[in-house]
Design a protein around this nucleic acid. Structure first.
Lengths: 341, 341
DNA sequence: CTGTTAGCGCGTTCAA
DNA sequence: TTGAACGCGCTAACAG
């Protein structure tokens, strides 16, 4: 005879057995009572719910997960949370997942090299799926496939590896920006890139460069790292390189555009957009502030997060589904940081 | 005879039994092998680790949690993630917890009224503790105590309920700001508050108001809601109320200060700080941008998150520890958005 | 509709 | 140092 603990002596940790005893039913009746479309007599149900409430009983999701093989946990892996653009994405994702009865296990990377440690934990917690906004190597992506854990990349694609992804279209976005700048009669073009390990950064820069080339324009490219300070630093570089003739600046994201605008006005005494046009990418909050009104491409965050969550849940329920890539066009916000055509 | 599945046929989900069989040892040997200071012969250990690697075995944290009664999960509950100030806090917290072998279950509230649903999930997942930056009712706080789940409030206090918390001192911060403003020879003071349901918002406003009163200064207070747009809107209100005589503005956070600065310059053609001094609170990134350089109080985020995590882990390990409130003084960033004494 | 039974994957006694 | 046996809290057949 097992020496069971007192039923409710240790407060706040009642089990389904405690509830069963209190309600005078079997443990499995309690289990069914907390399951969706299970058959329980109304009277029984009431007794059980009353007992559950009295004992402060909540089903143990850990135990449920062990047996159903569904943890209802999804990992969200984000490289640098502080990038002004992610908080909005993260909030949207968690709220949408929450609405679907899914909990978020958050992993934030201090350095890209931490990915392997993070994945280690992801496997241990038997998450049902993952949404990833960080660079993953092919073998890391393969690990997800091996384990049958569906994964959705956010603003990234699996280079080589077939994997589902949700992205904002860099090419059409940069085309729109470049076309508008060119029509606006600019002559000396500069580009501030993102860090070398950023997928969208490289993609945006390449798209802008090619489009400029197609239209017969040359450009200078300097490397930034997506933050405010690098907007300033890169602008200085470009002013030097172009002998201050720069009059159109394309930034790989809004934050650097803002840094460049401030630097132009304050450090160089240049008028934006009269003397220098600046465009960004993302459509983050500060881009719309009165002082900046950055001409940029706004990512359709709502639709993108909605798609990411929908795609993930689909694949959790039907693992055989093949990968799918969804590309959303951003919207050109004219702003007033650039003279357009 | 139970019909066991093929050992490794279903790839990527090996159990400790599979590893044991492959290594020719018992399951409990495998278990010990993955535990810290357990006694395993070096040769046995190697065999097991080799088998584990071959089978791609990772201990099931869910099952571990079920038996050890430690999920190694901590809930982080944040009301509005998009408040420019929280991403930094969230990133710090997750990284610090991660370093301690603890995973983060993230809950982001769309509305304060969602708290109860969130808590429901918190109980179900048997989290070891929680860090909360959202308003909790006394009965909600009591629920944590009932269940023996340690909780740390972040920039909030338990009103009535005894509960641990980590805060940045509003009183000393506002005193420093007000004192500096008063010495700077200002005459018409205005305050933009936070939303009514914000604890720090109310506290900061009250501290500023009292200090002004002590120094024999009167002030006008209008309600903001912590976002950029309300900085603009509230400034308009204050300009009207004071018949444009406002020359010192105290904002309950930096974001509103920035909104007010932009509005003053652009909508009213007022020079900041020559004609109007503006101060904020928090020390968020944009506050230091060249265009603003907001005079503000910088919260010591690193020390605060470090304290929160340390306090929480202490209480997870020693539940009998009584609540503790830690108050950190912020640092006055002089900036250039205000004429100080 | 309800109770009985058998595990989910692992940590933890207790002997050997 | 190792293995056998048990149980964490629950779901999922199955029989009644």
């Amino acid at each position: 005879m097992a020496v069971k603990k007192q039923p409710e002596a240790n407060s706040g940790r009642a089990t389904s057995y405690d509830v069963a005893r209190q309600a005078g039913v079997s443990q499995s009746a309690v289990s069914r009572c907390f399951k969706q479309g299970a058959s329980v007599a109304p009277r029984t149900r009431e007794k059980i719910l009353a007992a559950a409430r009295a004992l402060n009983y909540y089903p143990n999701a850990i135990a449920q997960g062990l047996i159903t093989r569904r943890s209802n946990l999804v990992a969200i892996i984000i490289s640098n949370l502080t990038n002004l653009y992610y908080p909005e994405v993260l909030a949207e994702l968690t709220q949408r997942l929450s609405a679907q009865g899914i909990r978020v296990l958050l992993f934030s990377l201090a350095a890209e090299s931490d990915v392997d440690e993070v994945l280690d934990q992801v496997w241990r917690y038997r998450v049902d799926g993952a949404i990833v906004a960080a660079r993953l190597h092919p073998e890391q992506l393969a690990a997800f496939a091996d384990r049958g854990v569906p994964v959705i990349l956010y603003n990234r694609v699996g280079e080589g590896e077939p994997v589902s992804s949700v992205c904002c279209d860099s090419v059409s976005g940069e085309h729109a920006l470049v076309d508008a700048l060119v029509e606006g009669d600019h002559h000396v073009f500069g580009i501030i890139s993102g860090p070398a390990d950023s997928y969208v950064g490289e993609e945006r820069v390449e798209a802008a460069r090619r489009r400029l080339h197609q239209l017969g324009r040359d450009c200078q490219i300097v490397r930034g790292n997506f933050d405010y300070a690098s907007g300033d630093a890169s602008l200085r570089d470009l002013m030097r390189i172009t002998d201050r003739k720069l009059d159109a600046l394309i930034c790989a994201n809004d934050l650097m555009a803002i840094g460049a605008i401030d630097s132009a006005r304050i450090n160089f005494g240049i008028e934006v957009p009269q003397d220098l046009s600046v465009v960004g990418f993302d459509g983050v909050g500060p881009a719309t502030w009165l002082a900046y009104q950055v001409t940029t491409i706004r990512q359709p965050v709502r639709r993108m997060t909605e798609a990411a969550v929908a795609m993930l849940i689909e694949r959790i329920e039907r693992p055989e589904l093949s990968p799918e890539q969804r590309l959303f066009a951003g919207e050109l916000l004219p702003g007033s940081s650039a003279r357009l055509g």
